[in-house]
Design a protein around this nucleic acid. Structure first.
Lengths: 185, 185
DNA sequence: CCGGTTTTCTAGCAGTGCTAGGATCGGGTC
DNA sequence: GACCCGATCCTAGCACTGCTAGAAAACCGG
């Protein structure tokens, strides 16, 4: 019986290896460089092994993204509540800045994750909750507060992506952030 | 002499043909379906002809995006000034909704356009100006107004992309828009 | 040591963006 | 009208992609 346990453990370990290899490769050379062959070479197995763990390349990207959501939620939750929206917004930008490829996997690449549904994984919701809790509730009801959080999230996401792809000037990034905090905070 | 003129005209016409073919194909079947072979078949030429017009596939996408910026700027400028931010925001969303693939080319795909620089093409600036002019200037100076416009644009972009990729629920889209207008209007 | 199962790899498929080289066409000149 | 030459275009191919069938190898229980 302990044999199958060891095998399962080894498999899980190799799966982590694939995910981290994909992430590292994407972060260093971009997602275009993450091919099944290069990935296989990195984990020192042949390509078909990848497909015994994941349905396809998309599934690997999805797994990486899922890791990202967990880390993002943790980074946002770790902020001082007294800092309010400024802290959360700052943490959000710092995360996107430090992990551009990871952020891409989470928010721009085509992945298959159940957002905003009954069975949404906890990490996907946690980030949203962190943003919502950083807002001054005032006299808003739950629905409106949720919508406001979604709006703030949208603004943050827009700032990140437009900035990184060169569609917004870098030098006014700080000013945009300050405005966001003053408008929504 | 008129011979070379005719040739130039024909070439320009074929270039338009390539751009519209790429756009139509992307809009109907997604950008993944836009391959050089399919594109060549559609314009009834061989693939190498594409490379006599564009440096590569990216350049074709860029050309499509450039068209999009012109159209977006026109759509935003056509709004009633009295409608204020609401009109512009509404037009922005309608444009993104009606031309999802075009919007992708403009804002999420990797293209090579000089945003926010000295030699930025007019259409790229026009859209930004339309958003800025829809904001109540109040007592803000030019810099702050520009940053605010960038922030609004970011929010709109975030709303569009997160909504379309299923990362934000569709049913609260109207509420988010209303909030955006009330917060920034 | 051996049989059977599971795991892994080799080899290949269809498709991608892109390009070198030869074929083909068209306009200007005799 | 016949010819030549330069511009234009297409055939064929390269190296690469994600993915998979079938052979090979490794492993475990008896």
């Amino acid at each position: 019986m302990s044999v199958v346990e060891r095998k399962a453990r080894d498999r899980a370990q190799r799966e982590r290896l694939i995910i981290t290899a994909a992430r590292e490769l994407a972060e260093s050379d971009g997602w275009d460089a993450v091919t099944t062959r290069r990935l296989a070479e990195r984990i020192e197995y042949s390509q078909p092994v990848l497909y015994s763990h994941f349905a396809g390349k998309d599934a690997i990207v999805t797994a990486v993204a899922l890791d990202g959501f967990t880390e993002l939620a943790a980074a946002l939750a770790a902020q001082d509540p007294d800092a309010g929206l400024a802290g959360v917004a700052q943490a959000y930008l710092a995360f996107a800045d430090a992990n551009p490829a990871l952020y891409d996997a989470m928010f721009t690449m085509r992945i298959d994750l159940p957002f905003g549904q009954r069975d949404t994984p906890a990490p996907l919701q946690a980030g949203f909750v962190a943003i919502r809790d950083a807002l001054v509730s005032g006299d808003r009801d739950a629905d409106e507060l949720a919508a406001l959080a979604e709006l703030v999230w949208s603004a943050l996401h827009g700032i990140v992506t437009l900035h990184r792809t060169g569609r917004l000037p870098a030098e006014s990034q700080a000013q945009r952030m300050a405005l966001l905090v003053s408008v929504f905070g």
